[in-house]
Simulated assay, not measured.
Amino acid sequence: MLLLEPNQTLWLAMGIVAAIVGGYALTSLFLLRFPNLLHRKKQLKFCCKHISHRGGMAEGLENTMGTFQHAVDLGTDMLELDVQLSQDGMVVVSHDNDIKRTTGVDVKISDTKFADLPLLRTNQEVSFLNGLPVCFPDASDRSFCLLQDVFEKFPGVVINVDIKNDDDELIAKVGELVQEYHREDLTVVGGRQESVIRKVHQQNPDIPLFFSAKRVVQLVLLFYSGLLPFIPLKESCLEVIMPSILWGERWADTVPTKYKVLARIVDFLLMSKVMIRHLDRRGIHTYLWVINNDTDFERAFSLGAKGVMTDYPTQLRHFLDQREAIDKK
């Protein structure tokens, strides 16, 4: 029997560990480049460059049919919207349940019948322009709308539905509407809470999902640990903030320095071209939000994003048209 000296045993153990770690790292890097050796590539029926956030809330009253129509007329690829459940069980398109911000009336959608909801006020604030006030005195459409109205009006447009609350009735009704209007190939559904994603997926596995906040954190941890290439993902879209917007000129004087530092750290970790490229190879689209100027449009697409969500659909249309014209030269 061969006996090893203590120092030889140590070196042998170190060699074995190095071989295992090296093999794992090489395999991870290889599968990062060729993920379809393990995972079937997702086949989404859409690819959206131009996404109108709440319909384009800097150009019209947010989440209204009039604003959605404006974005569609510009040729938007996707309408992003949010849903709440009214007291009488209607799926209402609204970011907030408490609608004082948008109507000036201190009521909640969940406590109000749809027919009794107040009109939207004509002056609003654009959240991702640091609360920049905008006013639409000539707005002809000031009414809340229903998700089914949007599905009926825009049957060929991709709709991104953000379910704001973990409400079983709301989740079930969204899924039923997607099925009723045969929109499984043209609708992305999700929410910040992982429980919402799980319930949507259980109800209808064919509906494309976007990552919840918790799953975004898990995704980043999996990527930097090298585990991501080995892990199956049920989601089809990564929809995340591009943190660099927080130190742009619109926010320069209002965001505390400590938050800007945190945003730079998150930006470094989250805005990885390698991770975005890996997801793309797996058929998972990356959409960045909420981006409202040409400089940030350019950065988002340079990172490998499939598309961007904007409050300014007209400006994004001009940017994409100019970009396409340059590419043709």
Rank of each mutant, 00 (worst) to 15 (best):
D206C: 06
G307N: 07
W251T: 00
F154S: 11
W11E: 08
L238E: 06
L61T: 03
D111W: 03
P155V: 05
K234A: 15
K328P: 01
V134Q: 06
E239A: 04
V308E: 14
A325P: 00
W247I: 01
G89L: 05
T112N: 02
M90F: 02
N160V: 00
C237H: 12
G307S: 05
F154V: 02
E180P: 00
F210G: 04
V150H: 02
Q203D: 14
L32P: 01
C135E: 12
Q124A: 11
L316M: 12
F154L: 09
R198K: 15
V93D: 03
V107H: 03
S52I: 07
A19K: 10
K153N: 12
E176M: 09
K234M: 04
S127P: 00
P35K: 06
E239N: 14
L228P: 01
R282V: 06
F230P: 01
S94P: 00
F114C: 07
Q8T: 13
E169C: 11
Y312R: 15
K45V: 02
K273L: 08
G191W: 10
H201I: 02
Y312M: 08
P229N: 06
D138N: 14
L74P: 01
L44I: 03
G55Y: 08
I291R: 08
R215V: 00
F34A: 11
S140N: 10
E176I: 03
L209S: 07
L238P: 01
I20T: 05
G22C: 09
Q87F: 14
M90C: 08
I20Y: 02
Y24A: 13
A172G: 06
A139E: 12
F301Y: 15
L262F: 15
F144K: 04
D77T: 03
Y181W: 12
E298D: 13
M242D: 08
Y24L: 12
L177C: 05
L12I: 13
A71R: 05
M14T: 01
I16G: 04
S244C: 14
L228S: 08
G307C: 08
V200N: 02
K328E: 13
A252I: 03
L2H: 09
L31R: 07
L132T: 09
T76I: 12
L85V: 02
V255G: 05
I51N: 10
G15M: 09
D138P: 00
T112I: 01
V174L: 04
V220Y: 06
E324M: 06
A18N: 08
T257W: 14
S140Y: 07
S52R: 10
Q315G: 15
N63A: 13
A263H: 09
L269M: 14
A252Y: 05
I109G: 01
F151Y: 15
V157P: 00
A58H: 13
E125W: 06
N293S: 12
R33T: 09
G131M: 11
I99F: 04
G75S: 06
A300I: 08
R250S: 14
L79P: 00
D73K: 14
K258G: 02
I231V: 15
A300F: 12
M14V: 05
